[in-house]
Structure formats: C-alpha cells, structure tokens
Design a protein around this nucleic acid. Structure first.
Lengths: 149, 149
DNA sequence: ATCGGATTGTTCGTATACAAACAGATTTTG
DNA sequence: CAAAATCTGTTTGTATACGAACAATCCGAT
C-alpha cells in the first residue's frame, strides 16, 4: 500500500505564504492604482496635498500639527505638505498670537478656488477607484476598510 | 406652504466631500496601520523588503526588473530595495552571462534563513491587520480588495 | 549584417512617511 | 511660584514610490 499523497518536499514548508494574497500587498497595489487614477484626474496637486487642502477648507484655519492629526500625517510629514502647498500659493500661514508655538494655516483664495474646482473630480477619483465593485459591494467594502484603520 | 427643508448655504456646496470616508484616505490609513503592525512583529526588515525576499524565495533567482514586476515595484524602486537587501547580506547578485544587461538576484543563506524564520510572523501580521473583521468578513474583504488592484 | 526598436538597469528630482532628537513655548503639578 | 511634563514645530536620516532621461545591450525585421 503506497502512500497516495506524495510527501511534500521540504521547500514547500513555506508554500502557505503567497505574497499576492496578503492584505498588505493588496493594500499597496490598491493604493498604487488609486494614486494613478488621482493624478490622472487631478494633475495639479497630489492626493496628500488635496487631503490637507480639503480638510483645511472643511475646518477653517487650523494649527499645522492639528491639521496633520486630522489628515493622519505626522508632524514631519505635514510640514513638508504645508511647505509645498504654500510654495504653490494655495495656503497662507501665520503665527498664532495666543500661542507662540503654533502656526495657523488657512486656505488662500487660490487654494479655495482650486478646492472647489477639483472636488468633483475628487469624487470621480473615488468612484473610479471603486468601480470594479457594485454599489452594494462598495458599501460593504468601505465599511470593512474603515474598520481596519 | 413653506419649504420644510431649509436651503443649504452656499458654503455647503462641498459638504458632500468628507475626506474621512474617501476610499483613498481609508486605504492610506489602513496601510499605515498595517505597516505599524508589520514593524512591530518583524523589526529586522521592512514590509517591502520582505515582499521582495519572499518573492525571491518563491521564484528562485530572478532578474532585478522581473522581481520588481512580480512585487509591483518599478525599476527605480526595486533597485533601492535590492541595494538595501544586499547591504544586509540577505541576497546576492551577479550579471547574467547570457544577457549582459540583466542582473540575477538570489536569496543568500542568511536571506533564506531570515525568510523561513519570519514567514510565520508575516502570517501573524496579516491576521492581526484583518483581526477587526470576522473570518467571513475577511474573506469578502480580501476578495473585494483584490479586485481593486 | 545592420538598423531600429525594445529591454535592462541607473540616475536624478520630487513627494510622501516615520523615527528620533531637538528647542522653544505652554501647561500642569507640587 | 518653580519644576516637571507636555505640546509645537524643526531637522536629520532612512525608506518607499514614481516620472523622466539616459547608456548599454539585445532582438527582430529587412
């Protein structure tokens, strides 16, 4: 009576790990695709910069670090984003008179205008990113995804 | 007959866009969380480096660019990853004698050892990342996520 | 055989992203 | 009030990530 199931070679001990099905790898690829869609529809500004600008338009003038917290960027990251947005003339910044540590940032005229001009495209970016899923699937997916944050 | 739904002020025209519910923002935050879990469980190597190393162990010796394609990294990115893996002694590389353009990369002894020693932790990373979802939800989520790549 | 196109890897520039160390300002505590 | 703890923003270093331009090599069509 021979064993009908051939013994797995030693090298198969790690066959259980398939990179292409790991959540981290899939998250990275989905993010890549999303960023491609974003830069295609909104070439003027990056996804991260748009996130900061939109939060700024939503919240009004905010301190730099607070804006970073609201957009999930650490202090070092938000500084770079703010610097680049200011260089583009999309935001203004000034010291908070009540707290000499803080820097108040606010959307400039040009920043508000750009935001209002691109927010519909941003909606399209989200739609196109999710377009491989049905409406019902999109709802489920977003609900699950939001639980993984 | 007064209109019972009060007219939205002009500034609300963009209220439909809430950053925190956009798929791109959620993808970024989920990726952040995943990377935090990864570096907590596998401090020796980054998520990206592990991806390259695991694909290398799966495929055997491969050209640098081909490995990049297999791990969704462009030529410039995979170069940096390969350089850092080689500096750590986890891979070796040599010119392909049959094609002077190509560079063959392969996992070193240390690289294979590290991979086999950490692959179970990598499984745990995926599990922990998905742990806010039930098993059934995880299956659905991964299926949807893989469709967005 | 050679020329034109494709592929491979490199380099540069820009943009996130985060850890760690830091200085200055403010707040909390004792 | 004074010391300690906290918060704010900056800087440095490292690691992805990608577009664009480039040289060397290979390959296919003529």
């Amino acid at each position: 009576m021979d064993n009908t199931t051939p013994p797995a070679p030693k090298s198969d001990m790690t066959a259980g790990y398939i990179l292409d099905t790991q959540v981290g790898f899939l998250l990275r690829r989905a993010t890549q695709r999303h960023l491609t869609i974003f830069s295609g529809l909104i070439p003027a500004i990056t996804s991260t910069q748009f996130a900061a600008l939109s939060k700024l338009c939503e919240l009004g003038p905010t301190s730099q670090n607070a804006l970073g917290r609201a957009t999930a960027m650490d202090a070092a990251t938000i500084k770079g984003v703010i610097d680049r947005l200011r260089k583009k003339g999309l935001i203004t910044s000034r010291r908070d008179p009540d707290d000499q540590r803080r820097i108040f940032v606010a959307a400039s005229e040009a920043g508000s205008a750009l935001y209002h001009d691109t927010v519909q495209s941003a909606q399209k970016v989200s739609e196109e990113t999710l377009s491989p899923l049905s409406k019902a699937e999109q709802t489920v997916f977003l609900e699950f995804l939001s639980r993984l944050t």
